[in-house]
């Protein structure tokens, strides 16, 4: 597989990762292990990725793992096409723990809370990790593929 320049740079600095190719805009996607993610996030921040554009999470497959996705951008003056990279961190469903990047990019606050709420990834070191969309007494993770919606009476037949 063709490797991007960032992947080569990471290889040169002995950062453990795996390249997942490029998306439709040519942005490189890297997979990073959950136990390495907190240190590699610091490395990427020091390198210059000072903006976490979005963070999201999804369930890869029934019985599979959970993924937490980070889109990073390097914001500089006078640059038309800033460098971007996409990081995917996978976690197993039996113990989904991923280090939080809240203390590096503060914009991860609500997005990691939403990821926790919807797919149930526990972000370590997040300061207030609790449900943000669902009621706090909710049971289950609604966007997991094995989630069964409770038979609540709410959708009325009335028009």
């Amino acid at each position: 597989m063709q490797q991007g320049w960032l992947s080569n740079w990471l290889v040169k600095h002995e950062v453990v990762h795996r390249s997942l190719g490029f998306d439709h805009r040519g942005i490189e996607t890297l997979q990073i292990k959950a136990e390495d993610w907190d240190s590699i996030a610091v490395i990427l921040y020091v390198y210059g990725y000072n903006y976490l554009r979005s963070q999201c999470a999804y369930d890869v497959a029934p019985g599979g793992s959970l993924a937490s996705v980070y889109h990073l951008t390097r914001i500089q003056y006078g640059i038309d096409n800033p460098e971007e990279v996409c990081i995917k961190v996978f976690a197993q469903k039996d113990n989904p723990r991923i280090p939080s990047v809240f203390w590096i990019w503060r914009s991860a606050d609500f997005q990691e809370r939403e990821s926790y709420d919807m797919v149930g990834i526990h972000y370590d070191n997040h300061p207030r990790l609790k449900r943000i969309l669902m009621p706090e007494s909710w049971i289950g993770w609604p966007l997991r593929k094995d989630y069964i919606t409770p038979n609540f009476y709410e959708i009325q037949d009335a028009h």
Partner: peptide, 14 residues
């Protein structure tokens, strides 16, 4: 919790 009460209330509505 509210969840349990909601389960009970939904079953009653059904």
């Amino acid at each position: 919790s509210e969840y349990t009460l909601r389960l009970i209330g939904s079953d009653l509505e059904h």
